[in-house]
Amino acid sequence: MTPDHSAPRAYRLLFLVPRAEWAYRPRIAVTAFVIVTQVFLYVLLWRALYASSDAPVVGLDERQAVTYSVLATLLGTGRVVMEGASQETAQSKIRDGSVVFWFVRPLSARRYCAWRGAGESLYATLWLLAGLAVGVACGLVALPPSWAAVAVTVPAYLLGQVLLYQIGLLVDLTSFWTVTSFGVNRLVAFAQLLLSGGLVPLWFFPGWFRETAGHLPFAATVNVPVSLYTGRVTPGESWPYLAEAGLWCVALGLLGRLVWRRAARRLLVLGG
C-alpha cells in the first residue's frame, strides 16, 4: 500500500457529519424534536411514579431518575441519529459500488472510518452539551454531586463513545458478508437500547439481568457514565467500571482490525 500522505489533512473528515447535517438543516430540527419529546415523556413518567412517595427507589430519588433519563436520551438518541447521517456506511457504499474507493485512497479505509466516527462523536457531544445546559437551566438535570464525579464521568463518557463507534463499525462491516445488514442493525440497536440502560436504568432490572448486562460493552456506553454523573456510582467505585470498559475497547479494537483485514479481501458488490 502506498504511504499515507493525506494523513495531515485527514482531520477534515471530522467535519463530514456536521456539514452533512448543516446541508439538510430540517434534520437538525427533527433531531431536536425527537429528543425533546422523549425527555418530556420521561419527565412525566418519573414524576408520576414518584408522586405517591418521595422515598428513593433502588437508590435513585426523583431528581436522579429524571437526570438519568434525560442524559441517557441525549447519549442514545443523539448518537443514533448522527450515525450514518453522512451516508458513508459500508452498506450504502457496497450497494452503489463506490466502496472500492475506500481501498484505493491514500488514506486507509480503517483510518477513514475512524476519523469519520470521531466526527460523529464530536457532533453528538455537542448535542449532549447543549441538552445538558438546557436541562440544568430548566431544572430537569441536576449537577454532579462533586468534582470527583465529573473527573470520572468524563473518561467513562469517552470510553463509551469509543465503544459505540466500535460496535457500530463491526455491525456495518457485516455488509461484506451479507446481502443486507438491516437485520443485524435492528438486532444490535435493540440490544444497545435495552442492555445499555438507555430505555430503563439497569438498576431497576432483576439482579441476574443487571449483573449480566453490566459486564457487556453496551452498559459502558450509557449506564456507567450516567450513573457516575448522577452519583449512583461513587468515584471510589468507578475504577472497575472504567477498567472493564477499557478492556472492551481493546478487545473490540483488535476484533475490528481483524474484520477489516478480512473485509479487504472479500468485496461483494451487487453479486460481482
Rank of each mutant, 00 (worst) to 15 (best):
G139I: 06
S69I: 01
L258E: 09
L45Y: 14
P56K: 03
P225L: 07
L270N: 15
G139T: 03
A264C: 09
F101G: 03
R186G: 12
L158W: 01
T212F: 15
E120A: 14
S53D: 15
P206Y: 12
R27Q: 07
G271S: 09
R116A: 13
V104G: 00
G256I: 00
F205N: 02
A10M: 11
A264Q: 15
V80Y: 13
T77Y: 06
V188A: 11
P235Y: 03
L74R: 00
Y68E: 04
L199M: 13
P3C: 01
T234R: 10
F103H: 13
L164A: 12
G119P: 05
V43N: 01
V104A: 08
V30W: 15
V30G: 13
F33N: 00
A137C: 09
C249I: 09
A189F: 11
R232P: 00
L71N: 07
L159T: 03
T73K: 04
W127P: 00
V81D: 05
G168W: 03
P145R: 10
D61N: 15
A130N: 01
I35S: 03
F190V: 06
A114I: 04
R105I: 00
F101Q: 14
V141E: 08
V250Q: 08
V134E: 02
A148Y: 04
V58Q: 14
A142W: 01
S108F: 01
K93D: 13
L122M: 11
Q64P: 02
P18V: 06
V57D: 10
K93Q: 15
T89P: 02
V99G: 02
P225Y: 01
L170H: 06
L49M: 14
V250E: 06
V136H: 12
V233C: 07
V141N: 06
Y157F: 14
A7T: 05
K93Y: 11
V136M: 13
V36P: 02
A23H: 14
L45H: 11
P201Y: 12
E88Y: 04
Q161Y: 00
D172Q: 08
L45C: 01
L159H: 04
Y123T: 12
Q192I: 01
L199K: 02
Y123I: 00
P206Q: 11
L170V: 05
L187E: 00
V99D: 03
L45S: 09
S52D: 13
T234C: 01
V184K: 03
A130R: 01
L71Q: 10
D4Q: 10
V136F: 12
T77W: 04
R19A: 15
L247Q: 04
P8N: 08
W177V: 09
P206F: 13
L126M: 14
L193A: 14
V30Y: 15
D172H: 05
L194K: 04
P225N: 10
S181T: 12
V57F: 12
A137T: 02
V66E: 07
P235H: 11
W115K: 05
E88D: 10
R111W: 13
Q91G: 00
P145V: 07
F190G: 10
H215S: 12
W115S: 08
G231W: 06
A51M: 03
L202E: 03
R79Q: 13
L74N: 07
E211T: 07
F205S: 15
A148E: 14
K93L: 14
R12C: 03
L270S: 13
T31F: 10
P240D: 11
T73V: 14
L60S: 12
A10V: 04
T212V: 12
F101T: 11
A23Y: 04
S238F: 00
